[in-house]
Amino acid sequence: MGLLSKKDSKLILDPLADNNPITIQVLGICSALAITAELKASIVMSISVLFVLGLGNVVISLMRNIIPSKIRIIVQLVVVATLVIIVDLVLKAFSYELSKTLSVFVGLIITNCIIMGRFEAFALGNGPWRSFLDGVGNAAGYGIILVMVGFFRELLGSGTLLGFKVLGDPIEKTGLYALGYENNGFMLLSPMALIVVGIIIWVQRTKNKALVEDH
């Protein structure tokens, strides 16, 4: 890649698959369960995390030499909470509709362990540009899994995608439903998100044996 050195592009590409925050590092599982019942929420959450993690990593990286190590976790929490609150306030003032869609996610972003994880593991030891790339990469890797889980849960659970009835109408019995197909209500419940994530992990490790740990 011309724009980024090989080392830098690795920061973006690694978390997408071989070092994915959800399937390999097993971070951010909580939000993957909570908001993936529909595709739209998954997409919105992914974009929000992308924004906060990219920016937060840069801020922490800039502060890395002056943060006292004893209270670094608290400092990280304060930074992410401040960022999220400011974004929320600005949206409420200038894009009220969007802020209402996002309101549920604000609290979830602050508690997302991927964010704290990347601050702690990367931004504290690297420069702002590399930290930014790392943040974007990890958020994208998180987003890919979220969108995959959201896609299957919404399709199989509600028979819709982004609210569109792609499989026909379950009450009017059109499309697939005319053939006796039924939505699987289980898919809408959180435990099924865990099972979908489990299946993704299984598929990924079957395809790439290097990811399987030895015991």
Binding site: I35, S103, V104, R153, S158
Partner: peptide, 12 residues
């Protein structure tokens, strides 16, 4: 109806 923080895809 509106809500402050119901689960997206379910209560929301």
């Amino acid at each position: 109806f509106d809500h402050k923080g119901e689960t997206p895809g379910l209560g929301a």
